[in-house]
């Protein structure tokens, strides 16, 4: 059983992801996008978890990497001809190059990782609140520059005409890949060292662990995954603005992580799917859903209810719905074998 532990830990998240994908593929096209969105959220939240969960350091900056991945992948997959007209201000390289969507996903991951590495080089020396604020400052800078510099993107306008290639199966495959990477990392030597620094930084350091180095590794990996997730996001939406990858996404994804349970992959996946599900349900309910009876919420109340629900879960279950534990099979069955 012990040897199977990593597989068991993967079993829970993977089953959930596949179940959501299957359920999504069975619903109508209009509903399917909600399932795809939930899966992309899983990818983003797990990417954030790789750093925040393992290092125990809060980061408000990860949506920057999502944004970089999204805009890079979006820009590079729009046809060159359209870009000449829609985005004439771009750098020549960005304006004239068009690549396929799969290479664009890889490139987004690379760019996210590189950006995270460069940001992490100085920032990973910080911990606690200063680290949180510094990453928030990174997010502020990324947003400000993306919104105003028209050589690298659409500026304040919408980036549209992006090929919508994130199908439900690709979203699921992406989420599965991100989750598998997260699990492999957290069970690796580096991951375990980082988790040791989370429990007691002083003791970890005294045992010869280089805190700075391990945090930087996790931050870079987590940035790469976030960039990848951003690319999935932009190819899901087909169009994106800078406001979509700023504070509210930061808050929502962090809330998903904490609601699920910040220190486990299982928590990240559960939190992302539950909050996304609740959100979709409430938005649908504004246009009447049938739950035994017809439920219609007044327009605009879905956000209020979602906010109240999230606050309530945090107040009632401060350590998250999973308590920060990994998925495991019920104990009785494990013993019986």
């Amino acid at each position: 059983m012990r040897r199977l532990e990593p597989l068991v830990q993967y079993l829970g998240p993977a089953t959930l992801i596949v179940a959501v994908a299957v359920a999504g593929s069975l619903t109508s096209h209009a509903r399917e996008i909600e399932f795809r969105n939930a899966l992309v959220n899983v990818a983003i939240v797990v990417a954030i978890y790789v750093f925040v969960g393992n290092a125990g350091v809060i980061s408000f900056g990860h949506v920057s990497f999502v944004a970089v991945g999204a805009f890079l992948s979006g820009l590079l997959t729009i046809e060159a001809q359209s870009k000449q007209f829609v985005l004439p201000g771009l750098f020549g390289f960005l304006r004239e190059t068009t690549i396929g969507d799969l290479p664009a996903l890889a490139l987004a991951a690379l760019a996210g990782g590189l950006y995270a590495f460069l940001v992490g080089l100085p920032l990973m020396r910080l911990s606690g609140l200063p680290a949180g604020i510094a990453t928030l400052a990174v997010l502020g800078i990324t947003y400000n520059v993306l919104r105003n510099w028209e050589k690298i993107g659409p500026g304040p306008l919408t980036l549209s005409l992006v090929p919508e290639t994130t199908t439900i199966w690709r979203a699921a495959a992406g989420a599965l890949a991100v989750a598998a990477t997260a699990l492999l990392y957290q069970r690796s030597r580096a991951g375990r060292q980082l988790r040791a620094t989370r429990e007691d930084a002083g003791a970890a350091q005294a045992s010869g662990i280089d805190v700075y180095r391990q945090r930087l590794v996790a931050f870079t990996l987590s940035g790469a995954l976030a960039g990848f997730a951003g690319a999935l996001l932009v190819h899901l939406l087909g169009s994106i603005t800078t406001d979509q990858v700023y504070l509210s996404l930061t808050f929502l994804t962090l809330a998903m992580l904490v609601i699920g349970g910040v220190s486990s992959l299982w928590g990240a996946v559960v939190g992302a799917l539950l909050v996304s599900g609740a959100n979709s349900f409430l938005v649908d309910a504004e246009n009447t859903v049938h739950v035994g009876f017809d439920l219609t919420l007044p327009d605009g109340t879905s956000l209020v209810i979602l906010g109240a629900l999230m606050a309530a879960v945090l107040i009632l279950r401060p350590s998250g719905l999973t308590g920060g534990r990994e998925f495991s099979l019920p104990r009785g069955r494990a013993k019986a074998r």
Binding site: I58, S248, L254, A255, G300, G307, I315, P318
Partner: peptide, 28 residues
């Protein structure tokens, strides 16, 4: 008050949630 014993990350995100809730009420 119910969160006094929670971890700093939870408290922080809870204030985020409250902020989100209030903003959506104003929006509504």
């Amino acid at each position: 008050r119910p969160l006094r014993k929670a971890t700093p990350a939870t408290m922080l995100i809870a204030t985020f949630a409250v902020s989100y809730l209030l903003q959506s009420i104003y929006l509504l």
